[in-house]
Structure formats: structure tokens, C-alpha cells
Design a binder for these strands. Structure first.
Length: 629
DNA sequence: GCTGCGTACGCA
DNA sequence: CCAATGCGTACGCAGC
């Protein structure tokens, strides 16, 4: 049998490539011997879009810290079956970024995700709990490569990078290479084997650290959540593909016609900041806002006023619209919507017109989720043009339940600020209340907007300057408003000071009430409050998803959107389900504050514009397996 | 053809 | 008194 050796952290490792019946026998014998141990598992396929037509599984790898087996399963029923039976028989497996492989193995190898999930340890989860920061933020990062380099062997090869070079030599690119490279190619096999060896070794290093740091229960929580989210991803959401294709054409036509308009003023590339800025200046406009590097800024905030439009794209009636500014903002929006949303949705469809956006249940440094391919958490919300491409199955409707101002409520709860807690308990509108405290009982709509921005400024760690810029109010007024805010809610100021003070006294991290480690940046201690609030709000939301699963409602879930879950249900009984979901999510007492939720029913498409409102219920809150108090 | 950076834009 | 938080994606442009 062909085998490949490789030194990892000074140890000799070997990767086997079984080809004959005897080889396969040797593999199954090995798997039987090792079945009680945690086995590293990984897969290689033709691409990352598991559900899109044409995607294929090529190899399944198994391994320990010193030994790996690469099974070429594509078009080879006996190897396919051996991989499958082995997976079903193992008692514990380690995966790096488990949800990806769960879905690949579920979809292509017909191993139910559920059977894998209950015996999986995801080394990416462990790594994230120990250091949630990406590389850009001064952390280790969460990819197999940076983690291996850091924890195991500084010389750990970049297997993806190495393969890209091979792909190029073979006349392919880094996207086409995965499908084209022969699966017995020595470098492909070697790297496929190394990935499971590194995963096994990472488990040996990270597992004990997670226990030592008291993060074991949080790890369990994250694995549970990952399961719920992977099941959501597998289910996908139905897309009205005819609508999407018409939408794409329409946006394309709009973008083209606006581009043509811009061309009349000498702008051939609407995405070129410099070209647009130069042309506007030549037309006599005065541009003052600058980018980080000092160039003239020509983003939406600059262009809309020049086009005499407010942030909601309605005419302001204060000046003659600059036709170039108007053409550029419109062209940009149309092409953004077409490329990032409409076309990305169309490109991600499976054979049944279902979209399976990638849900990263544990992503941000605050543990917030992210969704990519396409970024469904960022679909334009102002109108339903894009969102209504997502539809229910015939006979069903879509709806959602979201937490009401959860970050403000979490801030009130954790800080224990008397005035804010009482205002919430009294059922007052927080921004109205704040505006009244700052400006008195005769506050205006503008005052409420300022109060709202000051409130968010607190949550985000912002200062007077940025709030002034946001609201367009004079800096002095904002300073007064902030001072007044701090007098009204002294507990919030105290809480923020307390959190940042820890950093000043040398602590490099905060521990949230759910036990999560939140790393701080020396130079950005002001962000501490935001990390705490955002992270705790995320954990409450995550617990809510687990509760819904526990209650047997997971089959209805479609998408998580930070503080909102989109669900699907048969039209008969939709109202009852909405109420049930809402009841399960509502937290009557989170450190003395009720976390309320709102339910909406949209109809056959995800159309917030057309939503019907549903009413309230209650359920006690706790983070499963962790001590919230 | 690919990479990194800067800019911009979408969301909570 | 000071500091806007977290993401994913696309495009232009310079430099390999």
C-alpha cells in the first residue's frame, strides 16, 4: 500500500492510501482497533458549495496524532461504504469546523448529521472559546493552519496554499483545482492526511486547556448550538427563482442606465472613488468628508445629500439635485443588490431551488454568528425587494420572532442601572424616556433621534464626535445630551467604567456572565462594554435556539439574524406556532429585566413590509449547562 | 491570475 | 473628557 511520511512537531507521521481490497481490509482493521479513541476526520470535495448541483465528495480521511488514512470514495462503492460504516461505528470523532463536514457527510455519504453530531468534538469551537479573536485582531485565528502553526509546529505546512501551487502547475486555479486534481496526487494525499493528523493533535492540546479554563460546559453549549444551526443549513430555504431571475435583469438594466448617465459627466467607473470625487469637484461641488487615508469620501452619506435625497432616498427639497451624484448612488445600489444578493442567491441554489446559506454559529470575537454565501443577515431591510425572494413551501408561511431592543435591555440588566431598569419595567419607550430626561417633557422627534443615538453610542462605546456626525446635531448639544444621559443613568456609566478599568489594571480579558472569555485590546478599552453586551445578547439568542430545538420546533427554523429567528410553518396553525416560539423566547427575568419579544407573520414570502403582528408570553432564562448568576 | 489594501455598502 | 461595535462581499487599483 502506498504510504507517505511527514514530520510533524518532530514526530514521524504516516499517511496511508488504501487502493486494493487488502488495503481496505487493513483500514477497517485499524478502524476497529481504534474505535474507542477519538479519531480525527476530514473530507475533501470539489468545492465548498455542498448542496449545489455538481458538487462531489472525493475523499474521507481518518487519523490519529501519528497516522492517517485517506479513502478515495468518489466512484468507488466499496471505499464509500467503508468510510460510511467506519463513521457510523466510531464512538468519538474530532472535526475542525464540524458543521461543514457534517453536512458533506450527511449529503454525500448518507451518514445522518445527527449521528455524527452527538459524537463530535469540534476543534474550531475549542479554539474560539480559548481565543475568540481572528488574526487581524491580534489573535491566533481559527483556521486549521494558523492553529497548527501556533499550537503544534511552527513549520506546519499550509496545505491549502500548497495545493494551490499544485493546481497552478496543473493549469488550474484555486477554485477549479479541487475538482481537477487526481485524488491520488501525492501532495493531495499527503495534505489530506495531514489535516486529520493536525486536527487530532489540536484536540490533544486544546481539550485540556478548555477544561482547565473552566470552559467545558460552554463548549458543550456551542456544540449543541452548532447542531441546531447545521440542521437549519441542511434544510435551507426555498427561493422563488423566477422572481430572482427577473429581479437580476431589472437591477442589471437599472445599473446600466445609471452608469450611462454617470458617463455623461465623465465617470466611466462608478466604483472609482477618485474618478467620482474629481468629477464632482469639477462640477463645482465642495467635498469635505475624507477617508482614513485622507482621500475625498464619496460614499452614500456624501452622495445622497448632493442628490437632494434623505437617508431613505426621499427628496429633501433643499437643493438642485446633482445628476452625477444621483446617477452614481443609484448605479451603485443597483449593482450591489444584483451582485451581492440576487446573483449570489441564484448561484447558491440546490436542484430543488433551496438555498443553504453557510451559518457560522460561533464567529465574531463576541461569539456572534455570521452567515455567508450569501450574506442573508445583511439583506436590505428597508424594503422587501430582496428579502421576498425567500419564500415558504406551498401551503406554508414565513414569520419571525425577535428580541425587542435586546442590547439595551442587557445593558440595563447587567449594569443594574435603577432608572433604566425601572423605565423598562414600567413599559416605557426607552428612547422617549431618555429624550424626556435630556430635553424635558416637550422633546421633539429630533430629540428622540438624538437620545436614541446617544443610547446606541453607549452600547457601541462611541463618543460625542461620532454621535454628532450621525445625528447632524451640533457637537456642543451632543456633549450636553451625553452629560445629561450619564446623570440620568449613572449605573451605566459606572458599569462601563468598571469594565474598562479592569483593562487598565492589566486584565487582558473579561469573563461574561455566561462564562465566555472576551479578550480586550489595550488600545480600545472603550469597546469593553460593547463586547460584554453584544456577547451576552448573542448567548441569550443562542440559548433561545437551543430551547426551540428542545421544544421540538427546530424543523420550523430557517434563519438566525442576531436577535431574530425566521421560521416557516403550515398556514393553518401559523398563529399558534408564532405564539409558541415567542413564548419560548421571552425571558421574564434576566437579572431583573424582562427580555420581551415580538412575533410577526409575513405570508408566503419573507416580506417584513407585509407583516402581521402577533402577541406575548414568558419562560425563565438560563444558559444551558452554565451558571448565569 | 492572484494578493493585499482601501473603499464602500448591506445588516443587527 | 476620549474612543462607534460586530460581521461578509464586491470592486478598483497597485504590485507581484
Amino acid at each position: 500500500m502506498r504510504s507517505y511520511s511527514y514530520r510533524v512537531a518532530g514526530d514521524e507521521t504516516v499517511t496511508y492510501l488504501p487502493e486494493t481490497a487488502e488495503d481496505l481490509e487493513a483500514f477497517t482493521a485499524w478502524a476497529r482497533r481504534e474505535r474507542g479513541r477519538v479519531i480525527g476526520v476530514d473530507t475533501e470535495g470539489t468545492g465548498l458549495d455542498t448542496f449545489v448541483d455538481g458538487n462531489r465528495l472525493r475523499t474521507v480521511q481518518f487519523g490519529t496524532t501519528r497516522e492517517a488514512w485517506v479513502l478515495r470514495v468518489e466512484g468507488r462503492p466499496r471505499f464509500w461504504a467503508a468510510a460510511r460504516n467506519t463513521l457510523l461505528g466510531l464512538s468519538r470523532i474530532a472535526l475542525h469546523n464540524a458543521p461543514f463536514d457534517w453536512l458533506v457527510l450527511d449529503h454525500h455519504l448518507k451518514v445522518p448529521m445527527e449521528s455524527l453530531a452527538k459524537k463530535t468534538i469540534d476543534t474550531r469551537i475549542l479554539a474560539h472559546l480559548l481565543d475568540s479573536r481572528g488574526r487581524e485582531d491580534g489573535g491566533i485565528g481559527h483556521g486549521l493552519k494558523p492553529l497548527s502553526e501556533h499550537h503544534l509546529d511552527p513549520e506546519a505546512p499550509d496545505t491549502q496554499d500548497g495545493l494551490n501551487n499544485v493546481f497552478r502547475e496543473l493549469g488550474h486555479t484555486k477554485t477549479t483545482g479541487w475538482a481537477a486534481i487526481p485524488s491520488h496526487h501525492p501532495i493531495y494525499v499527503r495534505y489530506a492526511g495531514l489535516d486529520v493528523i493536525f486536527t487530532s493533535r489540536l484536540l490533544d492540546v486544546l481539550g485540556p486547556q478548555v477544561h482547565q479554563r473552566g470552559l467545558a460546559r460552554l463548549a458543550e453549549f456551542e456544540h449543541r448550538l452548532a447542531r441546531v444551526c447545521a440542521a437549519m443549513e441542511r434544510r435551507g430555504i426555498r427561493i422563488d427563482d423566477e422572481y430572482v431571475s427577473r429581479l437580476s435583469s431589472r437591477l442589471s438594466a437599472e445599473a446600466e442606465s445609471q452608469r450611462t448617465r454617470a458617463l455623461r459627466y465623465g465617470v466611466s467607473t462608478i466604483g472609482s472613488t477618485k474618478q467620482v470625487a474629481d468629477a464632482l469637484v469639477a462640477m463645482g461641488e465642495t467635498l469635505t468628508a475624507t477617508t482614513e487615508t485622507g482621500a475625498l469620501r464619496v460614499d452614500k452619506d456624501v452622495l445622497l445629500p448632493l442628490a437632494d435625497l434623505n437617508p431613505r432616498w426621499e427628496p429633501l427639497g433643499v437643493r438642485t439635485p446633482n445628476p452625477l451624484a444621483d446617477a452614481v448612488v443609484r448605479a451603485k445600489r443597483a449593482s450591489k443588490w444584483k451582485t451581492t444578493y440576487a446573483d449570489a442567491i441564484a448561484a447558491g441554489l440546490d436542484a430543488r431551488s433551496r438555498l443553504h446559506p453557510k451559518i457560522n454559529a460561533l464567529q465574531a470575537r463576541t461569539a456572534r454568528m455570521s452567515i455567508s454565501k450569501p450574506p442573508v443577515q445583511q439583506l436590505p431591510a428597508g424594503d422587501s425587494t430582496i428579502r421576498k425572494a425567500m419564500v415558504a413551501e406551498p401551503g406554508n408561511v414565513l414569520g419571525s420572532v425577535d428580541f425587542s431592543a435586546i442590547e439595551m435591555r442587557v445593558l440595563a440588566a447587567l449594569s443594574g442601572d435603577r432608572a433604566m431598569v425601572d423605565a423598562i419595567r414600567g413599559g416605557l419607550d426607552l428612547h422617549d424616556f431618555t429624550a424626556e430626561q435630556i430635553y424635558g417633557p416637550r422633546f421633539t422627534k429630533h430629540h428622540r433621534k438624538v437620545a436614541k443615538t446617544v443610547g446606541f453610542g453607549k452600547v457601541y462605546g462611541g463618543g460625542a464626535d461620532s454621535i454628532a456626525r450621525q445625528t447632524g446635531a451640533p457637537l456642543a448639544d451632543i456633549r450636553r445630551a451625553i452629560a445629561s444621559y450619564d446623570r440620568t443613568f449613572p449605573g451605566i456609566k459606572r458599569y462601563s467604567t468598571r469594565l474598562t478599568a479592569r483593562g487598565q489594571y492589566g486584565a487582558t480579558e473579561l469573563i461574561s456572565p455566561t462564562g465566555r472569555v472576551l479578550p480586550l485590546d489595550r488600545s480600545r478599552l472603550y469597546a469593553a462594554t460593547n463586547y460584554m453586551i453584544q456577547s451576552v445578547a448573542r448567548d441569550i439568542f443562542a440559548q433561545a435556539l437551543i430551547d426551540l430545538d428542545e421544544a421540538g420546533l427546530a424543523e420550523h427554523l430557517r434563519l438566525p439574524v442576531h436577535d431574530e429567528v425566521v421560521f416557516e410553518v403550515a398556514e393553518d396553525g401559523a398563529f399558534e406556532l408564532a405564539e409558541e416560539v415567542q413564548r419560548l423566547l421571552t425571558v421574564p427575568d434576566f437579572f431583573g429585566v424582562e427580555l420581551t419579544t415580538e412575533a410577526e407573520l409575513f405570508g408566503t414570502a419573507w416580506e417584513p413590509d407585509a407583516a402581521h403582528h402577533v402577541r406575548t408570553g414568558a419562560q425563565p432564562w438560563r444558559l444551558q449547562g452554565a451558571d448565569a448568576a
